[in-house]
Amino acid sequence: MSLLELKNVCMTYGKVKALQDINLVVEKGEWLALMGPSGSGKTTLMNIIGCMDKATSGSIILDERDLSNVSKNELTSFRRDKIGLVFQQFHLIPYLTAVENVMIAQYYHSMPDEAEALAALDRVGLKDRATHLPSQLSGGEQQRVCIARALINYPMLILADEPTGNLDEANEEIVMKIFHELHAEGHTILTVTHDMEVGKQAEKCIIIDHGRIAESKYNR
């Protein structure tokens, strides 16, 4: 059984057809890159897969559960247990330190555990920056805190919308290296990117155009 299966998924915002007839299968351990021009529907798709929005029609099966007819509360607990999110703008809480920003994900999931949070920061090479505020960290470091936060609750699926979009090349490399490591460890990853070079590093590229899947190809 695949980890994620989308069948005929459509999403409309009023008259705007953001997604039309999306069919997609993601296997456990795969690393997919979603690519396409601006406004093509990549973020919309991420929101649906990440249990943050409900599709207008079609079925989404995540870990053998059909998401098309569950309540908002169930969607929340699904998101909490199965999804790890990495954002282009990092979205760290400005008045919390790096380790506290990781612990807040633990807090809403189960119980904050500082030792575990510190280990997660160590994992992304930020052990010595644990007590720093986001404003005291570089963009690349903030993104690594964000990745540590996404990993802390052992998600089945990591979603990253333009994770390197706000980073310079050096930091992009560090972050991509972490994604490679995660992939090697067997994590299932979905990244959205504009950058062909970044897209190529994934196992598989899905090109979206005008809300439809235009192309799907393996990288070598």
Binding site: M52, T76, R79, I93, A105, H109
Partner: peptide, 16 residues
């Protein structure tokens, strides 16, 4: 709003 959205994205339910 952003912070609230983030907390929800991280799995905070309405009660929290």
């Amino acid at each position: 709003r952003k912070e609230i959205g983030l907390k929800k994205a991280l799995g905070a339910d309405n009660k929290a």
